[in-house]
Write a protein that binds this DNA or RNA. Sequence first.
DNA 1: GTTAGCACTTAGGCATGTCGAGTGCTAACG
DNA 2: CGTTAGCACTCGACATGCCTAAGTGCTAAC
Lengths: 337, 337
Amino acid sequence: MSEPRKLEVLRAIVEDYVHSREPVGSKALVERHHLGVSSATIRNDMAALEDEGLITAPHTSAGRIPTDKGYRLFVDQISAVKPLSPAEKRAIQTLLEGSEDLDDVLDRTARLLSQLTNQVAVVQYPHLSRAVVRHIEFVLLAPRKVLIVLIADSGKVDQRVVDAGQDLSDETLAALRTRFLTGVAGTPVAILPQHLAAVVAGCTPAERPVATALGKGLEGLAHNSREDRMVLAGTANLARSNVDFPLSIGPVLEALEEQVVMLRLLSDMAQDPRGVAVSIGRENPYDGLAEASVVATGYGPDASAKVGILGPTRMDYPTTMAAVRAVARYLSRILGP
Amino acid sequence: MSEPRKLEVLRAIVEDYVHSREPVGSKALVERHHLGVSSATIRNDMAALEDEGLITAPHTSAGRIPTDKGYRLFVDQISAVKPLSPAEKRAIQTLLEGSEDLDDVLDRTARLLSQLTNQVAVVQYPHLSRAVVRHIEFVLLAPRKVLIVLIADSGKVDQRVVDAGQDLSDETLAALRTRFLTGVAGTPVAILPQHLAAVVAGCTPAERPVATALGKGLEGLAHNSREDRMVLAGTANLARSNVDFPLSIGPVLEALEEQVVMLRLLSDMAQDPRGVAVSIGRENPYDGLAEASVVATGYGPDASAKVGILGPTRMDYPTTMAAVRAVARYLSRILGP
DNA sequence: GTTAGCACTTAGGCATGTCGAGTGCTAACG
DNA sequence: CGTTAGCACTCGACATGCCTAAGTGCTAAC
């Protein structure tokens, strides 16, 4: 029993099963793939593969389907990432080029990726931490309510309304704005808190309470900003694969909606040497995703924000990985300097 | 055959069917509701209701279920909006009070509404048109790329990156900013274009091209801003009602994702006298929603932005309408002055 | 206008039988 | 020792037939 052939058999099973969504038997296998041996031999190989936990039979007299472990081996050792077609590359380029707004870019990216892969696309907002404060604006909405706007050089704009704790005049606020602006402009967002503290400390006692409130607001913005947001697209693809999620797509939709779960999952995924991380079935920490796989990768200058897709375990990994990787590259380029 | 009793029978059918999701027969009806007549009489009434197209029988020997028309009559004439429980009112109040950011408010609203109704909640971003320009900011991201930020007094912040068409210095940009700011501050967003034109006209020939680009950007922001965005929550509720959407929830998810479709639908819905609009089944312009109903209402100062839910035609209209109405009221109050 | 009674229809559950795909095992082969 | 052919066996999928419960429509009587 040759080891290379066994792997070849596993590859064939994965490919056929992904294609036909039906358990694949020994006879069909020798017909579709020209392995130079008979079905009986394949049966022996399959029995071995089953012993190793790489494939399993849904019931006694059915073909075999890959287990999570089988997919893992396939992804890690057997498959090669398929290059995208020129048409697809062109589609990516033209679609992403027309956009201006960051929101717009991420939105288009998600839609594009979901169309390319026929799966649900997930795009995380870029992290703010490496960015530099470009501008600060305070706007008085009501005597005590101040809208804080923080603009980073990445083009990201975040806002929040804070309660100043006391009535304010436009003049006071303008003075404070200048104070803050000179104090923190050009500061990396990551170390913003220290600088804010210095600004607050430099205020007159009269200004102090308001300054503290504003400082807290800014700090909150910097810390808790949109980096924990994400954009979804292609949710309808889940329904199409009604067959793929035998139980129900409910838990999957729940996971997608609980952004915390998804974001956690995305950041926890180990990076694959080929630059695309894959998390398969029960490898996922969240139970609702036991029959789902996530393919993701980082993008942007430090690859800290993630872009990826979620689909059934039974998915075309090579093509999907290629699409995710390509989209991430284009995205980095667009957002780059 | 008395007319009032016929309506009573329709009401009973709707209520029982919503509750049991099974066709309801004449005998079960007289048992559950104490109409003072026998099942044979009810059968006559039901035959009449069927002739009028208000109910239908899935097959020869099954009970009846309401048609879209039947639900319509039920909603319009028979049902009374159920008041919310005090606990629910409290939940609304406490959940919405803790929020600061507009994004945050709408997000919480959507989640809340989806939990209250067990349906998919849809919240449209408020319109900008009645708002007044509070502040304008230009930020130079690259020699030719300018980030425009438009802050309205409603607390809404919109941004966009435009290409200035030529290299700029910080000074030039600051000068233009002052020019624009004095020209349009306090202007209602609706009539922004005229004022922008005036500002551009007042520029020196050297400034003209850049000013034009910036003006166009601002105009675009004002016009095409987030008013055509929306927030979703509770998509997983669609899956739970797997039984309710016999065909597939695919088309429904597609409709939800095609924001244009949903927004169009929301604005087209006729307002019900009781303040909540309902669109039932095939009344919906979009085919994918043929088995879905939308319950929505406006919120905010001019009730132009919509909040609502989407669910199966077979839904508890009285309770749902109450929840939507209540949430819209609280939302208006929170966003109000 | 209401009711009782009855013949009729039909979906759904259940047992049964058949078919085909696929397996595991054994014995033979090179 | 790895490979192959052959065969008995298992089990799901599907079709068939049967029965029951639920519900209807109609007619004749109240």
